[in-house]
Simulated assay, not measured.
Amino acid sequence: MTLRPPVQPMLAQAAESVPGPGVLGPLAFEQKFDGFRALLFTPAGPGGRVLMQSRRGALIQDRFPDLAAAAEQQLPDGLVLDGELLIWDPEEGRLSFEALQRRAAVRGRNAPPLAARWPAYFVAFDVLQLGGEEIMNRPYVERRALLEDLFADHGLTAPWTLCPMTTDLATAREWLETWTDVSGVEGLVVKGMNQRYTQAARGWYKIRRRDSTEAVIGAVTGTLARPQLLVLGRHDSTGRLRAVGRTVPLRPDASRLVGEYLAAAAPGHPWTGVRFAAAWGSRDVLDATLVRPDLVAEVSADRAIDRGGVFRHPLRFKRLRTDVTVEDVPRFGVGPNTAAG
């Protein structure tokens, strides 16, 4: 039977370093892009239509009519690709997650104008079905070879991109250190050459580049003596303290240390009345307590940051920077690889 949506995509679990070969056997390393996961289905025969599915199974082809039209013209029937949706902003000259969000939220007659302004690209990193034959049980090395043949045989170019892959560890490390300086590239995905594609399983590993930077502690959850996590901010060009993210829960020793320095907020705190989301894009809010915004925290951050300067993923607390002041903290909107020194 041919695959039809919804198909649960195979997933990756976070890792701090490259897993040893004993975990997955021979390894392949793919560049990890900061986009939207999507599966693309071409019809099995005449009369069908191209379908696109989000990671959670929603059909989204009407939000990306440019890709659907390109698939009808350029891709063979009975194909299922797994990949990442990206948007290139020609005005900014960079990949734009913000533009991708806008396109993903608009459908119907409003979608084509946005497609003309912000064209979409599909970075393919796996093929699950070819010529109507489901191939998920084949090892990754075979599926990758078939994916490369697909691009070569059909002369696929933009909006189709073959995800860069290497089996050389030195090359992968170079990608992690240098390619992640490019907007939209945030790390590596590590796969076993002999792995099958297992739906919904977290059988791959993802490694995001992380850099140290500083931010101001403006609020906490828990108590002042034993904070659970920190809500962090940076000052913008007008001197206003803007929230930029939150940390993961603090370790007990870090919680005790930070608690020794925290002080309750005085009247007129810049975040008075502000509600903080429990996670990026979430409607849940934190039960936060405002604190005096005069402490600087050094944190570890990945490269997923909005153009406005908000970190999309939780930060990791490293230490207090009692040797610097809030004036030494990078301004709001500055990337994670800038530190106070």
Rank of each mutant, 00 (worst) to 15 (best):
R107D: 05
R117M: 12
D153H: 10
T167E: 13
V23A: 08
P293I: 08
L39D: 00
Y261P: 03
A301N: 07
D328I: 03
G187S: 14
G233C: 05
T325D: 14
R319T: 10
L27R: 04
R316D: 05
F64M: 06
Q199S: 15
L114Y: 01
R316Q: 09
L79I: 07
R55V: 08
E84W: 04
R226K: 10
D149A: 14
E16N: 06
A120G: 14
V123F: 13
S237N: 12
R173N: 15
D323F: 09
G203L: 09
P270E: 13
L241K: 00
K191V: 04
R196F: 08
L85K: 05
R251D: 10
A279K: 09
T198K: 04
W271R: 11
L11I: 12
A301I: 06
V106Y: 04
L86R: 06
P9G: 11
K32Y: 13
G218F: 02
L320Q: 02
L27P: 02
R331E: 15
Q53N: 11
P164Y: 11
G259S: 08
D294C: 10
G308A: 12
L176S: 07
A71C: 14
G155I: 07
F332D: 01
V299K: 00
F36S: 12
L67V: 10
G22V: 12
D328S: 12
A115D: 08
P159N: 08
R226E: 14
P21S: 09
T213L: 11
D253L: 10
W271F: 13
D77C: 08
Q195N: 12
F276E: 05
T238L: 09
V248H: 13
L85Y: 04
L128Y: 01
V334L: 14
A99S: 13
T213K: 03
L176I: 11
P46Q: 08
E16A: 15
R49F: 09
P314S: 11
Y121T: 04
L320Y: 06
G47F: 02
L11P: 00
D302V: 06
R307C: 04
A243L: 11
R109W: 02
M165Q: 15
G341V: 07
L169P: 00
R55E: 11
L24Y: 01
P76R: 04
D306M: 09
N337M: 14
R102N: 03
F317Q: 03
A38H: 02
P26I: 06
L290W: 06
Q8Y: 10
L11Q: 13
R234C: 03
L232W: 02
A58F: 12
